[in-house]
């Protein structure tokens, strides 16, 4: 499965939800599908997208938060799995695109290429629900199910190690930050 196709499959689910992505291919591909003020592309601090998502989910229990993580990023902060599992906000969906590669920098294999299993790590960390997907159809089904069940979920999606032609977003990172903050402020003022 191509990550870009997987993202296209679930874009309708992302449109109205709070979405945090890691940097690189995921950010560029989601942006290319159509930017929204509720999307935050974390252009650095690898490993912390899920921590940021945890802060959002705990602070905004009425909203659903979706984190788009990657194998390289998650491997830089494996402890996050134990923290997510411990506090398990039911409104947090943690999606990990696993391409076994640091594709955005040219493709060094990560430890998942040599057998590390992120889904098993999430299970062993105590994650309430762990799902895996290898096709776009499985992926879409898993996302729909996780969002409907409202239980803290890690979904590991195996994708090909390919990225977009360009990683540039036509959006300054501070513009994204202030837009995202203003969007979340508006949610609170209407609630």
């Amino acid at each position: 499965m191509l990550r870009a196709d997987a993202l296209r499959e679930i874009y309708p689910e992302l449109e109205q939800r709070i979405v945090v992505t890691i940097m690189g291919a995921v950010a560029a591909e989601l942006y290319a599908l159509g930017h929204r003020p509720n999307f935050f592309y974390m252009e650095h601090s690898m490993g912390l997208a899920s921590s940021l998502g945890l802060g959002l989910a705990l602070a905004l229990p009425e909203q659903q938060v979706i984190v788009l993580d990657g194998d390289g990023s998650l491997l830089m902060n494996l402890g996050t799995l134990t923290t997510l599992a411990r506090y398990r906000p039911p409104n947090l969906l943690h999606i990990v695109f696993d391409n076994s590669s640091l594709v955005s920098i040219g493709g060094f294999p990560t430890a998942t290429a040599s057998g590390a299993k992120l889904a098993e790590m999430a299970r062993a960390a105590g994650m309430p629900l762990v799902m895996e997907a290898e096709t776009s159809a499985q992926f879409r089904h898993a996302v729909t199910e996780a969002l409907a069940r409202r239980v803290m979920t890690t979904l590991v999606a195996k994708v090909e190690a390919s990225g977009p032609a360009s990683y540039r977003l036509d959006l300054d990172l501070l513009e994204n930050r202030f837009q995202f903050k203003r969007y979340l402020d508006s949610l609170r003022s209407f609630s």
Binding site: S51, L54, L56, D185
Partner: peptide, 15 residues
């Protein structure tokens, strides 16, 4: 490190 990510999430959420 996780705390800084959580801090950003809480700030964005206004908490």
């Amino acid at each position: 490190e996780e705390s800084i990510g959580i801090a950003a999430g809480a700030y964005f959420a206004g908490v």
